[in-house]
Design a binder for these strands. Sequence first.
DNA 1: ATCATTGCAAAAGATTTGCAAGGTC
DNA 2: GACCTTGCAAATCTTTTGCAATGAT
Lengths: 167, 167
Amino acid sequence: MTPDLSLGEVKTSLTPAKRFEEYLQSRGMRSTEQRRILINHVFNHHDHFDADDLIERLPTKGQPGYVSRPTVYRTLTEFVDAGLLRKFELDGRGVYEHDYGYPQHDHLYCQVCRELFEFVSKDLVKLRDEVANNHRFRVSSHRLIITGTCEDCRKNSSRTRRKQDRV
Amino acid sequence: MTPDLSLGEVKTSLTPAKRFEEYLQSRGMRSTEQRRILINHVFNHHDHFDADDLIERLPTKGQPGYVSRPTVYRTLTEFVDAGLLRKFELDGRGVYEHDYGYPQHDHLYCQVCRELFEFVSKDLVKLRDEVANNHRFRVSSHRLIITGTCEDCRKNSSRTRRKQDRV
DNA sequence: ATCATTGCAAAAGATTTGCAAGGTC
DNA sequence: GACCTTGCAAATCTTTTGCAATGAT
């Protein structure tokens, strides 16, 4: 479910990879094989994912394209710092989504299939800013998650979950 | 910061302790010293807290009133199941707040002093229900956290944080 | 050559679990 | 007495860190 791009999209001239290169340069950090591998994986899908999802998609140890778990974690943090990804917490895990070039949006979270659905609401941002103003609070971001049951899961409440349980 | 009670308060005839007793009865669970200790501690403060906060307020091992860490975790989960507390995640930790007899509200979170401020918004609930309707999604709850900097911390940006860092 | 980065192994932090002993109904 | 609960110790899960080897500039 992709949000309406007309609503809040940031105009971007650079690809995520380019932007990340700039970020690295500006910080005296280096362009490495692992960082290139990860940026490709992350920006080839428009999904929400956690560190494990990403690691599972990578080649295993010994194969070309393998990146170790600590490096995955470290690099995800760099992507967040670079403004490429946003991070939030769900069920005790860190979840990442595209930020760079991607419109502001919020989420519906189905507690049955554990899937995230995106929606965009200008009114929510207005409401947020009003509330913050009233409290003389300077907003840097917000996170709204509406939890419940999605249409499919309501219909098929007797069937098996479609998405794997994470034990 | 207490939300306006006129807005969303659930009328409650029972004290949390009584309601919990009923819950235990209905489930064939037992009324124990530890559960009574914890319900008193939890409902004597109107704060947000995590498991550690609660444990720190309890007597230490060997003292009367001591409750072990696993029991604290287990009992907090029971309070949530019983509808007495609500739980959410902040910075990777579970945070609890009163639910039973407490009005619906949301939070401003200051990333400097790490304090939570509550606010109530009827419009937010309306917006939430509209969005959910559009997506044929059945809402069971929502969680909005507005992150930023509170007034005090903006003013005193050079001073030390008022609330202890959690290492 | 210098210094950032990686992978490994191990640590850390929060929470959960197996189980024997003890408490409640 | 039956069986729910507790506390202990240990496990689990996710994420982080120290460090020596490796790679980028």
